[in-house]
Design a protein around this nucleic acid. Sequence first.
DNA 1: GTGAAAGCGCTAACAG
DNA 2: CTGTTAGCGCTTTCAC
Lengths: 350, 350
Amino acid sequence: MARITIHDIAKELNTSPSTVSKALNDHPSISVATKELIKTAAQNLNYKQNRLASSLRSGRTNIIGIVIPSSEIGFFAAVVHGIERLARTKGYNVLLFQSTENGEYEVEGIETLLQTSVDGIIASIAMETTNYDHFLEVKKRKVPLVLFDRTKDELKAPSVVVDDYKGAFMATEHLIQQGYNRIAHISGPQHIKIFNDRLCGYVDALRSNNLTVDDDLIQYGKNSVESGRMGAEYLFNSSKKPDAIFAAEDFTGLGALQYIKKQGYKMPEQIGMVGFGNESFSPYVTPSLSTIDQQAPQMGEEAFNLFLEALAQKNNSTAPTLELEQPKKIVLDPVLVVRESSDRKRENHS
Amino acid sequence: MARITIHDIAKELNTSPSTVSKALNDHPSISVATKELIKTAAQNLNYKQNRLASSLRSGRTNIIGIVIPSSEIGFFAAVVHGIERLARTKGYNVLLFQSTENGEYEVEGIETLLQTSVDGIIASIAMETTNYDHFLEVKKRKVPLVLFDRTKDELKAPSVVVDDYKGAFMATEHLIQQGYNRIAHISGPQHIKIFNDRLCGYVDALRSNNLTVDDDLIQYGKNSVESGRMGAEYLFNSSKKPDAIFAAEDFTGLGALQYIKKQGYKMPEQIGMVGFGNESFSPYVTPSLSTIDQQAPQMGEEAFNLFLEALAQKNNSTAPTLELEQPKKIVLDPVLVVRESSDRKRENHS
DNA sequence: GTGAAAGCGCTAACAG
DNA sequence: CTGTTAGCGCTTTCAC
């Protein structure tokens, strides 16, 4: 009645456990006939491999760990989807951790993944993280580490990001082309690279279009609907009201959008707005929110591919892993998604 | 340079592996002094437990498997959050599978969880699932199984749901109280219990308010924005136009809402609308969508508690588990969330 | 092409 | 309170 093991199958067929193991793993040195025999017997006995035992012995789990801030942020959920979809085809399963932007939870998550002997870790760093020892630990244990979106160059891990600078530049220039010229920016925490990059893209787009950069038009929010609302409130109560806002991500943009609507401004006629991230709600708000799409599913797939590369490199230990060389960094092209909130030229919204 | 094991610690301290193991696990039979000693040594050597070995030996993984249709549906993401938050405090980790509503993936997911020897499985059944053998397999292997939201009574597993009938009744009655009287319903696949329950709640609310139930006002959709749009289109092109819609979930509601807006109807003045599920986008659409909140985080916590109960019952094998008795079923109270799409009496929207 | 033997790292009796 | 022993179920040399 207890769980069926390869010993049971071996006994049943008067053969040895090792033969059964090899047969079930399609080892080349087993004849097709016995493989057949063993596989059907396994089916009949309703045998299920014990992966713990297998992994303990072989040193591989075929599990890849993912650490993200939150799967309630559509972007991360979509990246995970991309990873999973590809991982499945390669025989990998996914163990998911959410840090909820909390540094300690992130440490715990990494710890657990390491204890579980995952074959690799793909992560996007939590907002609150300031110490990176846990990631260094991953590298020290020679577990392949790949970062995406919220990366950290100092960790020298292969990574995949969208070109945040370019995306911000595109968003800002789009607003300029729509005829807005007092464009404000609500950014995020500057210790996170992507928000700084987006800020730089915004600034450079203004400059290269001969618009002045006004510090008073730059707000620093915390990536929430609420902080977007507050940022907009501040901007519109200042002496230098903007006529458009580029928000560093869609949640902030949504908050700002709500405030602007509430104040009775017409959007996009009077005020324009572009977000960043193409969140799932963005097409559905009114006016629908223009944004920069970050190519989430691709990002996931690229991240998984980087993991496979790192794994191959690790196993192929003929080369002693030149730690000196720069890790591979894949930069995806952002895509501008124009919706009602910035489409002043057409004004084709209902 | 290789991974540190308890043997290394034992050697270091001239003691035995078993003592080290016990100390690290806070076994009562070890003196506080040696525990102290061993723990600091472990820290210094940067020891990390090998959970595979531990689990293989002990028979417990402290991992709980979750199978959901998709974490891109806010409700499921929120339930998972609820489970995780509680599980963490009890020393459990979560292994997450998404079936993407696909029956085969669901089978694969369950299979993998079983192979990984998770201590229990919490699941919500995929739309496409019609065969339940994989869930029966879980029970056969004596792995505690808990279902939530998309449950199946025949599986005789403990479960937690929101009172779907009551929620639908509340939603419909709310529309009636707002003065609507030709209330349509866009439902979901009827082989899924919750959608049938919601349909019944709708019907009974009409009846108990002396409104006639008109089959032509009932549409059967597939839980997507698109199918909501189509359902609404059909209803508004029929000879019997409704003046309100109760949608079986928010995605459908959103699609219907979009169609209605596009047609130029004023909402809620002319047409009222209530959804179900309180998706993350629902407060942000225009008009914001009234809905039934399903208490997702609570649902997650209750589900985890049911798992703990089942586990306790399994271990406490003095009683030979009366399979005859009905499994525990927790029914949460739904909460009506009134927003702009149905708030005709106040009409306090911007 | 098949089987015997060893052991992955840990925990759980049990003896001391 | 500590140490010895055995073995979880599997994979992997290495003989045959």
